[in-house]
């Protein structure tokens, strides 16, 4: 699933994105970054309600290319700038985690993210 399709499904605002044609194979929803590092596989979209620079750091270490902040959380400009610098796409949606994950799964993003 392309990143721009994900943005449309989640009615998400794109805050940083150098390539909306990135192909995402699966997704992982978590607010615990060590769990993300323990279990996540390749080409994963990270959905999180945690707003912290460490979300971007974790994405950087795990080669995660796109992050969606859920529950209406909007990252600060420092986080957006950090993501842009590292080529990580950032979006924000008002959907809660469960609904956001459910919408993407229903739309066909069914690869196991962990």
């Amino acid at each position: 699933m392309k990143l721009h399709e994900i943005a449309k499904i989640l009615d998400a605002e794109i805050l940083a994105c150098s390539d909306s044609d990135i192909e995402i194979m699966s997704a992982c929803g978590s607010d615990l970054m060590s769990d993300v590092m323990a279990f996540v596989k390749e080409n994963v979209l990270l959905l999180t309600g945690l707003v912290s620079p460490q979300v971007i750091r974790t994405a950087e270490m795990m080669d995660i290319r796109a992050v969606v902040f859920v529950r209406g959380k909007v990252p600060g400009q420092n986080i957006i700038d950090m993501a842009s610098e590292k080529g990580i796409a950032v979006m924000a949606t008002c959907e809660p985690m469960f609904i956001a994950c459910g919408k993407l799964y229903s739309a066909g993003l069914t690869g196991k993210g962990v």
């Binding site: 615990l32 060590s34 769990d35 323990a38 945690l50 460490q54 979300v55």
Partner: peptide, 13 residues
């Protein structure tokens, strides 16, 4: 934990 760490996965990771 509110900052996303402290889940007891650091050393195991």
């Amino acid at each position: 934990r509110e900052m996303g760490f402290g889940a007891g996965m650091g050393l195991p990771n």
